[in-house]
Design a protein around this nucleic acid. Structure first.
Lengths: 185, 185
DNA sequence: TGACTGATGTCAGTTACAGTCATCACCATA
DNA sequence: TATGGTGATGACTGTAACTGACATCAGTCA
């Protein structure tokens, strides 16, 4: 074979590694590429920008979220649908995945530009869920409201799941956060 | 006087203008600066990055939001505090301001990088409000949940206020959205 | 065998930003 | 009035994030 396979995955792993040790801003795209025997140009063929190397591959998670929404019984109230989506998404992060998620999040938490991208992705997810809700007949602004709330709930639960010393599963935590949310209004 | 005063404001006005006509990406920082008789270097002295020229000056709005939160009676429920904050923030955007807000938003809506920044700013606001709630004795995750919900409600109301043909005041719209939110769970 | 494809390399170019030093009206103060 | 400080700016230089165009060449398939 002419090239080592899995260029994208190798780049992602190397990037996480370098970001963790040298920091995001002090690591160049060329360095990441070089560390796996590729060139900067190839890096940017796989990822539209430098930040994206940390965020690629979330499509499956997003899909789980959406599928969870679709799995709700027809006629369910908007927040029921969202609850179903959050719970499906939580199942997407088993405990084995926690260490890697922690490493990744620790990099993100140290860089505003990465936080910005993370928020943006979550916002995109909310938009997609809102579309799904609207397709179910939920009207605005309830659809957007519910979808954004779902993203918020998941985000808070995820942050807690990642926290040092936290032992509970993401599913348990997000159920708790959802309960608190319902308690709010 | 040695220089024309109000360099920052002139840069912001010129930037909005150029972004609207040529588009954000097709406008360089040097062009913006040159169009008001300054240099690129001076542009970046006033704004930490190119996107920021559209977002600077929101501190007053943020402060209004926070002040609104503080104005809530002691012992008020989290969502009461948030409602007070949203209402104070809405008052910050009188109808005269709508055309300018529209022009600005139309630029932002056309560029993902700008949307990213806008989300990030709103997220920062939510964080600040969450701090304020915590200082009032609200515990986690209720504080973050309520704060993020407030930001979401405001964001949705603002988007509606900006929409073509919309006549109602931002205060009216956000009261409606808040009502819908309470209806949700 | 030969055309074709797809992932890569190479090279050149633009632009967002940052560091550093010089400039020079204005202001205070002696 | 002289003198020294200050603050906003300009000029110059450098780095790195991206982009477009073109070349390469192993594997594949007609």
């Amino acid at each position: 074979m002419r090239w080592e396979p899995g260029a994208k995955e190798r780049l992602q792993a190397a990037a996480l590694d370098l970001f963790a040790t040298r920091g995001f801003e002090r690591t160049t795209a060329a360095e990441i590429a070089q560390s796996v025997g590729l060139t900067e140009r190839t890096f940017f063929r796989h990822f539209s920008d430098k930040r994206e190397v940390l965020f690629h591959g979330q499509e499956l998670f997003f899909q789980a979220f959406i599928d969870g929404a679709s799995a709700a019984p027809p006629g369910a109230a908007p927040m029921e649908v969202v609850a179903s989506a959050v719970s499906a998404a939580a199942a997407f992060f088993p405990d084995e995945r926690r260490p890697l998620s922690r490493a990744r999040q620790s990099v993100i938490d140290k860089n505003p530009a990465l936080q910005e991208r993370e928020r943006h992705k979550l916002a995109g997810l909310a938009t997609t869920v809102a579309d799904a809700l609207r397709a179910r007949g939920v009207s605005e602004p309830a659809a957007t409201l519910a979808a954004e709330s779902g993203a918020t709930v998941f985000g808070i639960a995820f942050a807690q799941w990642i926290r040092d010393g936290e032992q509970r599963s993401l599913a348990d935590i997000s159920a708790d956060v959802l309960r608190e949310f319902r308690n709010l209004c």
